[in-house]
């Protein structure tokens, strides 16, 4: 459970970093600089959270290796699938904080 929470956290991290660009918002939305900055900070926070969550079960070296791998998989799937089914991908992103919290609580420390 904790491992899945960590992987979701890293997925969330890439999605936020990828989305923190005005060109990736719908045309009618005008994101402010503050919002974009907040998204980048949240992306960094989600990355750290992913590493910390994994480190609870497997140690810091393993957590860093897994984080790099998970980020590349999240990035590949997100960039390739986002133009095809953006709603599905962003729905998962929206559900992520809740899922991460629930799985982290259920998972073993």
């Amino acid at each position: 459970m904790t491992e899945i929470a960590a992987l979701l956290s890293l997925y969330l991290a890439f999605a936020l970093a990828h989305g923190a660009d005005p060109r990736r918002f719908p045309a009618r939305w005008k994101p402010t600089r503050g919002l974009l900055f907040a998204m980048r900070v949240a992306a960094a926070g989600a990355t750290v959270a992913g590493v910390v969550l994994w480190a609870r079960t497997g140690g810091i070296v393993e957590a860093l290796l897994v984080a790099l791998t998970a980020l590349t998989v999240a990035a590949t799937s997100f960039v390739l699938l986002a133009p095809l089914s953006p709603r599905a991908l962003w729905s998962v992103v929206l559900a992520c904080p809740l899922l991460i919290a629930a799985l982290a609580l259920v998972g073993k420390p």
């Binding site: 491992e3 992987l7 497997g58 791998t69 799937s77």
Partner: peptide
């Protein structure tokens, strides 16, 4: 250890599986 994915358990092997297909 890195080549045989001897860390991270089953979740890591699934991630490596996706990256190998990619």
């Amino acid at each position: 250890g890195l080549h045989y994915a001897e860390f991270g358990g089953l979740p890591l092997r699934f991630l490596f599986f996706v990256l190998a297909l990619a």
